[in-house]
Design a protein around this nucleic acid. Structure first.
Lengths: 189, 189
DNA sequence: AACGCTTTTTGCCAAATGGTAAATGATTTC
DNA sequence: GAAATCATTTACCATTTGGCAAAAAGCGTT
């Protein structure tokens, strides 16, 4: 729990009562490898925070290929706010790629946080803005680089992830085939 | 001015006094084609809103290639908040690629909005979150598609832009060479 | 209309990546 | 520990894209 609180406190101030209130509304859950936290087509009904483990956000493009949009690691929020806020179907899957331990807030409890904690809305939007900026900064440069450079950037950005997840997910994230990535790995050694 | 106000009102409520106050703090400027709104290495000192024209955000990667990260069109905010908020050097250039008419707020006036209008901070962060989400959704899919599909997606996303800007900018946005894009255009016809 | 300048299109060949399938390696299950 | 299952590497060839340079087209100026 303290991980979440200190994460939140980086974006705004909260008094002890408010912190207690947040803790009351939180619930800890476990998701096993390959299980989904949320699914495309379904409305996202909870806000999560990863204490342990790695998830990925993925979808199927119109050729039916599975695309990994990004990975979300420990100490990050995991939620599709577009879907959660507007109660519309999500466009992507969020899947655990290792066993994960999460803190989650139900829609109802989240609403209570919004109603009770003055400035919660602002804090949350700062967090979202920050996370989105990171996604842009990470994903965008891939467009203009060749496959090897992409992989090297990936290693830089996700050093703790590289060796914990299947090569196929990385390839899909980088927009190249498994075999290409395998060749690239070989060339790098 | 009304374009900006109605844009803002989509993200939160403001009373007439507040709206007047915003208008007071705003200034309209013109930037000519190829001029910069802000530059890499310099701290971003104003928040802009495009009334007319197209800008692009670009930078140089470590091979010295000029990369267009995205285009920003009419009725959108243009600002590097990372740089503006923290007063650190910006990492990208914002360049007008047609003549542009903008509304701008100086750092000082922006600060006054923050201090005077309750909830301004929250509104701004919602706007930023929305804009960033759009950037992610636009740029991210490019990674996994081949050059032709990228170009088709570009046309979908920026239908009003395609024919107003040089091919080289589009190529740089899509992460392909000019000649490739030229060939792709030919094949599509 | 002719000139200079910039942008776009082409042509040529080399290099990178994809597609497919088989071989190898690793891991789980019984 | 053998079999089955899954992940990774390799091989082959086809296709796409890049690099470079020249030609063509477009545009503004005189």
């Amino acid at each position: 729990m303290k991980e979440l609180i200190s994460y939140i406190l980086r974006f705004g101030n909260l008094n002890p009562q408010q912190i207690d209130f947040i803790a009351e509304k939180a619930k800890e859950i476990v998701i096993h490898k390959d299980e989904y936290f949320s699914e495309a087509g379904k409305t996202s009904r909870q806000v999560g925070f990863i204490l342990e483990g790695i998830t990925r956000v993925c979808y199927y493009n119109n050729k039916g290929e599975e695309i990994t949009k990004y990975f979300i690691e420990e100490n990050n929020l995991v939620v599709d706010f577009e879907s959660f806020d507007n109660e519309i179907p999500s466009t992507a899957y969020v899947q655990a790629i290792t066993d994960c331990r999460l803190i989650v807030f139900s829609k109802k409890n989240w609403q209570e946080l919004l109603n009770t904690i003055v400035g919660w809305d602002a804090i949350v939007h700062k967090i979202i803005a920050k996370a989105l900026m990171q996604k842009v900064e990470r994903r965008s440069p891939l467009v203009s680089e060749d496959a090897t450079t992409r992989y090297l950037k990936f290693i830089e950005i996700y050093p703790t992830v590289v060796n914990r997840i299947p090569l196929s997910y990385i390839a899909s994230y980088l927009g190249i085939t498994q075999s290409s990535l395998s060749r690239i790995r070989k060339n790098i050694r």
